[in-house]
Design a protein around this nucleic acid. Structure first.
Lengths: 211, 211
DNA sequence: CCCGACATGTAAGGAGTTACATGATTTG
DNA sequence: CAAATCATGTAACTCCTTACATGTCGGG
């Protein structure tokens, strides 16, 4: 009995929520454990061999045939057993961080562009996420034990973290442009706008409206 | 001329900031691109072969001899050229996310524990980071072009994101315990405390003091 | 007419982890 | 007396990405 890996559990979790094809898994896995199809297909076979999944073959016309995978009782048990173990530490790999760290090699203008571009991307993802959240809130049942609940929580999490990183970006831009809050007192988000209050370098009380 | 990978640039960046040994790199790389020594040592050799690094051999008594690596002009140029290219998208792999997503398999009690444990870890890292930030602010030169600046920015970023995730955890716990803010209006951090304001399920205005 | 969506797979290679190997010194 | 710190390296493995392979349909 060889142990299954994290991606395997991610697959069990997604399929357990709702049966789907390997093709669909690529998208569904994205918010929790991104993977390419070349990694997914062989693993599906392996999970089925272990009796954690089963598939139904669906012949289609005009488009390729497909396999719809569902979780088995055994699969559910495996997931449940894994679920209660302490998760291993997260690994975040982000080239952006290295580039921020490397700001000493480039001139200020380039650092500003780096942060600016990041902010633009975050802005995009904030918009996309708030749309998704609204959609879930409007159309789906959201009891704490529903199958949509976990998904909903994760979108919220991503949204909040993106907002917060945006605020950080703005803080960095202010530092780089020397409009500096020296003693930060209060940072808050109100109606989608980010606000920062504090005492500036020159001693005056400052407020930045961000985002 | 074979391209060097992201870890390679991370190494150049760290060594460029301050010459160091492979052993020290393991710790210094951690905030930007974590790697094990088994990956670092061979890459250092490769980077030196390419003329991007040089090392000075230091014989020691009572402890193993060491190699202190420094960046070369060529290395600095390589880093600078890479620095201005758009960074690739971040990859976050976090088992915790799969477990949150899987909350439908376990009972509520287990979900609460999952979030609780995460919060405790975040609390720890918030404390650790605020200590580090204070230390940098007290002892180091922090001009925007100094070599400490990027490092300082990243600690701030991590601190803010940890704080925000903590607040999210608290929001989830409130949902799970049915003390629910239905319409979130305002979330802010003040003097290290996290505050959430909004309209509760029962229509009353609520304020949660978190952290 | 090209591109993206749908749909499944394999092969090769690069990136990252775990384990093997060695050994003195300090700290609890 | 055990564990952590310092210090460097290799070998074997798993994980992940990129590329190869195939084919239909619909939209711009």
């Amino acid at each position: 009995m060889i142990a299954i890996n994290t991606l395997g559990y991610a697959i069990l979790s997604v399929i357990g929520r709702k049966p789907c094809t390997g093709y669909e898994l690529v998208n569904y896995l994205d918010p929790i454990w991104p993977a390419k199809h070349s990694q997914i297909y062989p693993l599906l076979t392996k999970l089925e061999d272990k009796g954690l999944l089963v598939h139904e073959f669906v012949e289609q016309m005009g488009r390729p045939n497909k396999k719809i995978f569902s979780i088995t009782e055994k699969g559910k048990e495996a997931l449940e057993n894994w679920m209660v173990k302490t998760p291993s530490d997260p690994v975040n790999r982000d080239e952006f961080l290295i580039k921020v760290y490397s700001s000493w090699v480039a001139d200020e203008e380039k650092s500003i562009k780096l942060i600016h571009d990041r902010m633009a991307k975050l802005e995009e993802s904030v918009t996309r996420l708030s749309g998704k959240i609204k959609k879930i809130e409007e159309t789906q049942e959201l009891e704490t034990n529903s199958k949509n609940f976990g998904r909903y929580l994760l979108f919220h999490r991503k949204f909040r973290l993106a907002q917060e990183e945006k605020a950080w970006c703005q803080w960095v831009l202010n530092l780089l442009k020397n409009k500096k809050i020296n003693i930060p007192l209060l940072s808050m988000t109100f109606a989608g706008k980010l606000l920062q209050y504090g005492i500036g370098t020159e001693g005056r009380f400052l407020c930045f409206i961000l985002g």
